[in-house]
Structure formats: structure tokens, C-alpha cells
């Protein structure tokens, strides 16, 4: 665990058992970030239990698999969101980058396996490029991240609607290439490939964040861009790279979603903005940057999606879900998202 992203200054009396030599359990509970991951996972288990009580079969292997698969979509978007939130940024362009990517995927592949690879590369390249533009606007033009990514969301919405003629184009109704659909739906050793993909992403992102120079610099920028700059960190390139990753993951989520659903639709990216941010925050990252990790976001995504699924299983009407959703996030924030009082 290299990031060692503790909150500022624990008190003198509380020894911080983060030393490499501390017992495993203590190390697991040592940092608040890690504690939150544990809470999030515990919450998911409790929720599955409630779900099982409400509707038997909810916590059956297939039920769990279904919930986790949906969580993986949120998790993919949350990967990108984690990267930018770690430097105190935010990516509001997720909905239409995702939606644009899904439509680009079907229209460029036209449902043929032969075109699947170029379409895949094109779509991922598009997401990355959009992310780079986000980063460049923020770090080179000095546009606040909220404004830049918000505007980019509009730009992507306009372009997507415009090019697809509002989803009336001939190619818009195409299906995702069968290989892509199969890749999402198939199972390997009884585990859906969508989940395996997520597992790979979890490992990769965690390695990048905790074991590479890039990851170290990301945390450094999140803690203090100024101090990092003065220590020779290339803040500009790093920032652009991080937003590019966010764009890439949004596009990837878009591809997986069309693979899952078969076809693209307008508005399919909308739920993922709120959920991705919520997952990252529930997973213990600080919205101000410098603290958190992707395991947390993944745990956040699982508990969030489980919560929604349980509420649906309880036949909770939409308004109730919406209210409970908000209240639970508030409660979690009040439990551990507070800033330290300065006085």
C-alpha cells in the first residue's frame, strides 16, 4: 500500500499503525480510507441479506452475479472519475462521452465482427481524445474543471445528436458486433466476462495508482499542485493524462453497455454521472483530492448498485428510491466525509 493517503495530522496520542510491520488486521483497519472500503463491503453484504429476505433468490449466485455485473458498469466509469477526483477535479462529461461512445461503436461496426476491432479502437480513441481536451482546457486555459467538463458534455451531446440525426440515422439501429456482445455475456470459469474485465481493470488501476511514478505524482498533485510543481512534477501532462483516462473509461463503459444491451439509445449515459461520483466518494476518496483509491470506488459501486437493486426488489417506487439514495449518501458523508475544523 504505497499511497498512504491519510488525513492530515492524526493526533499525538493515536499511534498510526500503518507501518509495514503491523499485523494484517490492524493494517486493514489502520487508515480511514481502508476502513471505508470495509464499511462499503459490509454494507453490501447486509444489503444482500436484506434483499434475500425481501425477495428470496436475491442473494443467490445468479442474483449476485447480476448485481455485480451492473456494478461493473458503474465501476468502469468510476475508475476514470477516481483518477480525476484524486487530483481534486471532476468529470461531468461522463454521460455524453459514454453515450457518444456507445453510438459510435454501433454505427462504426454496423454489427459486423470484422469491423469490431477498428470500431473498438476508434471509440476508445474518441473517448481518450475528448478527455485530453478536457484536461487541456483545465490546465492550459485555466477553465474550472466543473465548467470545462460541463461544456464538454454539451459539446458531446450536440455532436452525438447531430451526427446521428437524433438517432434516426440508418446505422443507428445497428447492433453491437456479436463478438462484443458475446464478450460481455459469456462466462469464464462461471464468472461473467464483464466481471472479469472489471477485475482486470481493478488490478491495473490499483497497480498504476500505488506502484508507478504516475500514480505517485497523481496523489502528489491532489495533495498540492503547487508543491508538486515545485518538486518537478509535470502537472500539465499528468492532468491531461488523467482526464484522458477518464474519457477512456467512459468510452469503455459505453462499449460494454452496448455489448450488454445489444443496441445504443439516447440518454443511456445519464445515470452514470451521479453514480460514478457517489461511488468514488462512498469509497473514501476526498472530493478535494489527494486521498482515496480505486478499490474503494469499486466497493462504493458495488454497495450503491446493491442498494438500488434491493430498493427495486422491495418494489419501492421511484421517488422513494431517489430519496433513500440521497439520504444514505448524506448519512455516509456525515459519518466520515467531514472536514477538520480549523480553530
Amino acid at each position: 500500500m504505497a499511497s498512504s493517503a491519510e488525513p492530515v495530522m492524526p493526533g499525538p496520542e493515536t499511534p498510526v499503525p500503518t507501518g509495514q510491520d503491523a499485523p494484517l488486521l490492524l493494517r486493514l483497519l489502520g487508515s480511514p480510507t481502508r476502513r471505508r472500503i470495509l464499511y462499503a463491503l459490509l454494507a453490501s453484504i447486509v444489503l444482500f441479506a436484506i434483499g434475500q429476505a425481501v425477495r428470496p433468490g436475491f442473494a443467490s449466485p445468479s442474483g449476485i452475479r447480476a448485481v455485480l455485473t451492473i456494478a461493473s458498469f458503474v465501476g468502469l466509469v468510476a475508475a476514470g472519475q477516481t483518477f480525476v477526483i484524486l487530483i481534486g477535479g471532476i468529470d461531468l462529461s461522463v454521460p455524453w462521452v459514454l453515450n457518444g461512445a456507445s453510438i459510435l461503436m454501433v454505427t462504426s461496426s454496423l454489427g459486423s465482427n470484422a469491423r469490431a476491432i477498428p470500431a473498438l479502437l476508434l471509440t476508445l480513441g474518441m473517448g481518450t481524445l475528448v478527455g485530453m481536451l478536457n484536461g487541456a482546457g483545465i490546465v492550459l486555459l485555466g477553465v474550472p474543471a466543473v465548467v470545462m467538463t460541463l461544456a464538454m458534455n454539451g459539446i458531446m451531446e450536440g455532436l452525438t445528436l447531430g451526427f446521428s440525426g437524433g438517432m434516426t440515422c440508418a446505422a443507428c439501429g445497428s447492433y453491437a458486433p456479436p463478438v462484443v456482445q458475446a464478450a460481455v455475456h459469456d462466462s469464464l470459469f462461471g464468472i461473467p466476462t464483464a466481471l472479469l474485465l472489471w477485475l482486470v481493470v481493478i488490478v491495473l488501476v490499483s497497480v498504476v495508482l500505488s506502484m508507478t511514478t504516475f500514480g505517485r505524482r497523481t496523489y502528489a498533485i491532489g495533495n498540492s499542485p503547487r508543491a508538486s510543481f515545485l518538486a518537478g512534477v509535470d502537472v500539465t501532462t499528468c492532468t491531461i493524462g488523467l482526464y484522458a483516462l477518464s474519457g477512456l473509461f467512459s468510452a469503455l463503459a459505453g462499449i460494454v453497455l452496448v455489448g450488454y444491451g445489444g443496441q445504443a439509445a439516447l440518454g443511456m449515459g445519464d445515470p452514470y454521472l451521479f453514480q460514478s461520483i457517489a461511488a468514488v466518494v462512498i469509497g473514501g476518496a476526498s472530493i478535494l483530492g489527494g486521498r482515496g483509491n480505486y478499490i474503494g470506488s469499486a466497493a462504493g459501486a458495488i454497495s450503491l448498485v446493491t442498494l438500488v437493486s434491493v430498493l427495486m426488489a422491495m418494489n419501492m417506487p421511484e421517488y422513494g428510491r431517489s430519496i433513500i439514495y440521497g439520504v444514505i449518501i448524506l448519512v455516509l458523508l456525515l459519518l466520515y466525509g467531514r472536514e477538520d475544523a480549523e480553530r
Binding site: I277, S322, I329, L330
Partner: peptide, 17 residues
């Protein structure tokens, strides 16, 4: 003592509900 962006993200959901 919560960040405004998080508080209002959560209350947005509540008010919409």
C-alpha cells in the same frame, strides 16, 4: 462541515424524489 458539491448532489436526489 461537508463539501457543498457533495451535499447538494445528495439533496438533489432527495428533492427530486
Amino acid at each position: 462541515r461537508l463539501q457543498p458539491i457533495l451535499v447538494t448532489l445528495a439533496t438533489l436526489s432527495i428533492f427530486q424524489g
